[in-house]
């Protein structure tokens, strides 16, 4: 186990390094400077040089790269090109709150509804609720979340005026974006749980439990559900990806001051340092989640052996 984690950590470092390098060199290839072209070219040449020097853009690329890696190892992402004088880390910490709130609510909602739907669908296999769940599962992964977010905003926000249309004012403003993000999570989890449960319900120990004379509910809760919930951990990675991708569009639609909208804005404004910081933080987070899920999964379910898995 220890050896396995060490090996994984090595790969994580390598992967992060590749991401770091790719991000840096791709950003360097970007057309234009991060500064407003018109105003920047109006500056006298000596001032231009000063500005470039302040951001370290006057040095050769490999020196910039080395400095950049050095700074990141210290946990510094440099100064934002757009929000002058602000450190990117500060900008990020200001923005992370709303994103985490909306994301966490979406995951929570997705998990709860997905679990309930999935369990019911498997328990009442081939009945109305089962078909309903399958329809939700197919639609949930097929309807792009930005389309859903836009439609929710239009109907619930504008037409019926039940919930705030946009902006970050009170908790109620986080409801619609959370729902929009959660639908694909609901679909993924419901489908996954249904499949797992149908599998588990055919196992011998379920028959044994029934033969013992346990009530249907007890068989379901104590044996079937407990064994089918564990593998859900394995789709945590895809869920995180899903929420992050969704948040880029959804935060813009609902004008939420979060990481997703910051990212899209930085892309539009060529804010190199912010783009790089978000790319690296998100990648690191994603990789960690994958590692934690793999390790957790093997700890919770003794039938899974990481090492033998690798040998295959």
């Amino acid at each position: 186990m220890f050896k396995y984690i060490c090996k994984r950590l090595l790969y994580i470092v390598l992967t992060l390094f590749v991401i770091l390098t790719a991000t840096f060199f791709l950003m360097n290839k970007l057309p234009g400077t991060p500064f407003d072209d018109e105003r920047f070219s109006m500056l006298p040449p000596e001032d231009q040089a000063l500005v470039l020097e302040q951001y370290g853009l006057n040095e050769p690329v490999y020196i910039q790269y080395l400095k950049y890696v050095q700074n990141i190892l210290k946990g510094k992402f440099g100064e934002s090109y757009v929000y002058a004088g602000q450190d990117v880390s500060d900008v990020l910490t200001h923005r992370i709150g709303p994103s985490v709130l909306v994301g966490a609510q979406a995951v929570l909602l997705g998990l709860t509804v997905g679990l309930i739907l999935g369990i019911l669908a498997a328990w009442k296999h081939n009945t109305g609720i089962d078909y309903f769940t399958m329809i939700v599962a197919v639609l949930g992964v097929s309807v792009p979340n930005f389309v859903l977010a836009a439609l929710l905003q239009y109907f619930i926000g504008l037409k019926w005026g039940i919930l705030p249309v946009a902006f970050w004012e009170s908790w109620s403003s986080s409801i619609l974006p959370s729902i929009a993000l959660s639908v694909s999570v609901i679909a993924m989890i419901a489908r996954f749980i249904r499949t797992e449960m149908l599998d588990v319900l055919q196992q011998d120990y379920i028959i044994t439990a029934k033969a013992k004379g346990l009530s249907k509910l007890k068989v379901l809760m104590n044996h079937a559900v407990r064994n089918s919930i564990i593998p859900v951990i394995t789709i945590l990675g895809p869920i995180i990806v899903n929420i992050f991708t969704g948040s880029l569009a959804v935060e813009n639609i609902y004008s939420i001051p979060g990481i997703g909208s910051l990212f899209v804005d930085s892309i539009k404004m060529n804010d190199y340092s912010t783009i790089m910081a978000i790319c690296i933080c998100y990648s690191a987070f994603y990789i960690l989640v994958i590692l934690v899920t793999d390790v957790l999964y093997s700890l919770i379910d003794p039938r899974i052996r990481l090492i033998s898995n690798r040998a295959e």
Binding site: T15, V18, A22, L26, V241, F244, C279, S283, I290
Partner: peptide
């Protein structure tokens, strides 16, 4: 194994 850890979207957006 190194590449699989990279979130696709990040690279697609940068490209």
């Amino acid at each position: 194994e190194v590449l699989i850890g990279i979130p696709h979207l990040i690279i697609v957006i940068l490209l």
